[in-house]
Design a protein around this nucleic acid. Structure first.
Lengths: 332, 332
DNA sequence: GGGCCACGTCGTATATGGTCGCCATCCGCC
DNA sequence: GGCGGATGGCGACCATATACGACGTGGCCC
């Protein structure tokens, strides 16, 4: 590949002038500029981003660290991030941590080593990993999940409120023994959605009981097992609120396998949509989140922080909506 | 961030020795090595990958250029690529071209400028974009879709055979007017799956007719519109083979909206699975592809080419399977 | 009209952070 | 004492951006 020196020689100017022409930093004689442009064309020259990055000690890469690339929630979010990044001249490196703190730590180390321009992270838990980034002054935005103990830009949805909506809706439909399948305790969304569920029950005079609560893993299999275990209770639930999309799918699957009629026998509400929800029978009632916008908002925040590192950290909360479908509408 | 010079000073050795300790290239006095390791720890030093890349004129990034990040087919594929990449010390930059050749060209230019170590591409069409990469001697692997006119490593599934399986199955079920909704002509998978469909019809003595063929866009809306247009034919089809997952979903949606019973009135077979196919009613008969393995195979090929650029190009073809479910099993 | 100053434009040199070739040195062994 | 192997350090190099210096020209003022 041609270098800036090759272009300079071809255009009979100095490398500095070529650089000036390409970056438009300083004024250059139009005649020389034209010669440079021509030489760039002739040699099919592309500036070496690596060298530029080294010189400027900044890169044009963002790392997006998510916990499950198989979950459509995250792919939609990534797309939101990516569209904004692309618009501001950044590329997105996708990092799939699989909820494994060790894998996450590896990716953070890579982001550090690559001197990435910024990181969007939906953390699998431990905040000490993130501190590495903060110490190195790499801009970070937490998305979907909150980081404890560190002050970083954050984009969330109103998890507590969404969970309240879901639970209240089940109560309104006449369900009384409402279970909750939530995610790992250490993850803020799992905790907040559980809190919303409990709050809704209490505010209607019901006492949440621990044997109707399950802590699963935010995956399909976990939802399946949790549902099975709930059905095996001596007093099984007549409804279930699952705090993410994949666990909802798993729970419904379990109900189908056991021949439990939804919504007649057991009502189901999930948190976050799944694609083709309208084709699933029974169609699923969900608390839907603006996943794409979540990604966009995080990307905008990251861009702003890169432009102005001294900016005070902010938290953006997006709204959720209850989409009522078949799985929770009890026949009269 | 600490540099290699800081570490050298702290450990009272030369930068070269630090480099040797970290890369294990040459033998170093254990005492000095220990001092270096200690200094690395103390300073929380991370080698600057940018500088290393510049010096070695090679990077540790792979670009994966796909046409639709919203399609679970591609996310699963990306995951396959990513798992292998991670294992060989590469990171994956995800590039979503949205079937837009211009966006694709931009990503290729970025890969070139970043001097990426390799590119996995599921191209949206024009091969001249790829030639840029080949000229720059950047290793390329074509995945899912073939590149015309250039000799590159390629990973495909047996599209023609899969389509034959699907079409023959519909014939076996007694469907006679079988339509085909395929993708853009310029994309090899669309063409090959159409060819398989036509071949299957012919081998059973049926003549494929153009008014039962639609060229859509591989998306849900396109599938919907194509199905609608097929139903509006004077002699509408009694079955449809859709050549990707999203168009299948769109077609079924259209049938549901119009109250056309599946599979009684119209049978449906799709190419490639969708997640939660088992929850969709009617459950969808599909030609399933090993999406994750497709990604893995491409990544392995890319790794091999990077290790040995002179290696002759190879083509890997993975097998498809027909998964018969409800949408194509005609009641007797 | 001439001289001086200022500004615009260009080239040279250096910095970025690593890696590695080459050479010098040191130590051990024969 | 000499030779050889192992190890450390110096310096070049990767491609780019930019500070700084130099040069030339134009305008203004005397």
């Amino acid at each position: 590949m041609a270098t800036i020196y090759d272009v300079a020689r071809q255009a009979q100017v100095s490398p500095a002038t070529v650089s000036r022409v390409l970056n438009g930093r300083a004024s250059v004689d139009p005649v020389l500029a034209a010669r440079v442009q021509q030489a760039v064309q002739d040699l099919n020259y592309r500036p070496n981003v690596v060298a530029r990055n080294l010189r400027l000690s900044q890169t044009s890469l963002w790392a997006v660290i998510i916990s499950d690339i198989g979950n459509p929630f995250f792919t939609s979010m990534v797309r939101g991030v990516e569209d904004v990044a692309q618009g501001s001249g950044f590329s997105v490196v996708l990092c799939n941590s699989d909820e494994d703190p060790e894998k996450e730590a590896r990716y953070v180390a890579a982001a550090l080593a690559q001197r990435m321009a910024g990181v969007v992270i939906s953390t699998s838990g431990r905040p000490n990993v993130i501190n590495r980034l903060i110490e190195a002054r790499i801009p970070v935005v937490a998305i979907d999940r909150q980081l404890r103990g560190v002050s970083v830009d954050t984009v969330l949805v109103d998890n507590v409120h969404g969970a309240e909506l879901a639970t209240t809706h089940l109560l309104d439909q006449g369900y009384r023994r409402i279970a909750c399948i939530t995610g790992p305790r250490r993850i803020s969304t799992a905790a907040q959605r559980l809190r919303g569920y409990q709050r809704a029950l209490k505010s209607r005079g019901h006492q949440p009981t621990d044997n109707l609560i399950r802590f699963a893993d935010f995956r399909e299999e976990g939802g399946y097992r949790a549902m099975a275990s709930l059905l095996d209770e001596t007093e099984p639930p007549d409804a279930v609120f699952a705090t993410n999309n994949l666990m909802t799918v798993g729970a419904v699957e379990c109900l189908v396998d056991r021949g439990v009629k939804v919504p007649a026998k057991v009502g189901v509400v999930g948190f976050d949509d799944i694609p083709w929800a309208h084709l699933v029978r029974p169609s699923l009632t969900t608390v839907s989140q603006p996943t794409y916008d979540l990604g966009r908002a995080a990307a905008v925040l990251l861009g702003e922080r890169i432009a102005n590192p001294a900016k005070p950290t902010s938290m953006v909360t997006l709204h959720t909506d209850l989409h009522i479908r078949e799985s929770s509408t009890r026949p009269a």
